[in-house]
């Protein structure tokens, strides 16, 4: 599925579930999605539950605006050979939520989207989501490199910097992102030191005296006992 198809799916999904008026909003399509997004499973207090439910219900980005956001997110992190892209990881939804959670982000994001559309209209006579991928990239190239971008592109550079940061956070905090990163923590483990090949690569080693102070993971379930001098016996 290419980026445009992904986007289309995203929009259709929201239309199917959430169409109530002319300004359709993308957010919580199903009860399941609301539940998941609300973090029912992460021990919310009653206050937090209500606050987050209200944030979920609040409308911010329109479908059209979200289309620009999704297009940019997928340019920032398109699918790779081994991992899905930003839309696959629902990054646009995250950005829509976080702007409601941090209201100071609302104007920069809404204004940034408008700036992108205006730039696209000026250059190509159409909004950002209606121009070709090559044309989109032409604009992005002018705002993606802060060191070399021209002065007149500064608003776009600022917006793109912000979108880059939010996209990276939104992506690498999902399962797709963690897998791409190779993160294998947050599960029961028995830390037993840096792997030997890593020690070798970094020219490091454990000193014998230091290791003598460390836990023997074979003995971790044996109850601790000490002598009177505080020496661990078990």
């Amino acid at each position: 599925m290419d980026r445009r198809d992904t986007l289309k799916t995203l929009l259709i999904g929201s239309v199917a579930g959430g169409a109530v008026s002319g300004t359709m909003l993308v957010g919580c399509q199903t009860e399941e999605a609301v539940k998941e997004a609300l973090g029912v499973g992460i021990g919310r207090t009653p206050f937090e539950r209500e606050r987050d439910a209200n944030l979920m219900k609040e409308e911010f980005l329109t479908v059209a605006e979200l289309g620009v956001v999704a297009t940019l997110c997928d340019i920032i992190l398109p699918p790779s050979d081994s991992a899905g892209g930003a839309s696959d990881a629902q990054v646009p939804d995250f950005i829509n939520f976080i702007a409601k959670d941090i209201p100071d982000l609302k104007i920069p994001i809404r204004g940034g989207v408008a700036w992108m559309n205006n730039e696209s209209l000026t250059r190509f006579g159409k909004g950002f989501t209606d121009i070709t991928n090559a044309q989109q990239i032409e604009i992005v190239e002018d705002i993606a490199y802060p060191d070399t971008a021209s002065e007149v592109m500064k608003p776009g550079v600022n917006f793109f910097n912000r979108m880059r940061g939010l996209t990276l956070t939104g992506y690498y905090t999902t399962k797709i992102g963690l897998d791409d990163l190779g993160y294998v923590g947050n599960r029961p483990n028995a830390w037993d030191g840096v792997p030997q090949d890593v020690l070798d690569k970094h020219g490091m080693s454990y000193e014998k005296e230091w290791l003598a102070k460390c836990v023997d993971q074979e003995q971790r379930n044996v109850k601790a006992e000490w002598d009177e001098q505080g020496n661990l016996l078990t």
């Binding site: 037993d192 840096v194 970094h202 490091m204 460390c214 000490w226 661990l232």
Partner: peptide, 11 residues
């Protein structure tokens, strides 16, 4: 004091 064993240092 009466210490439990320490975890090994990380990189």
């Amino acid at each position: 004091g009466y210490f439990l064993p320490a975890p090994k240092p990380r990189l």
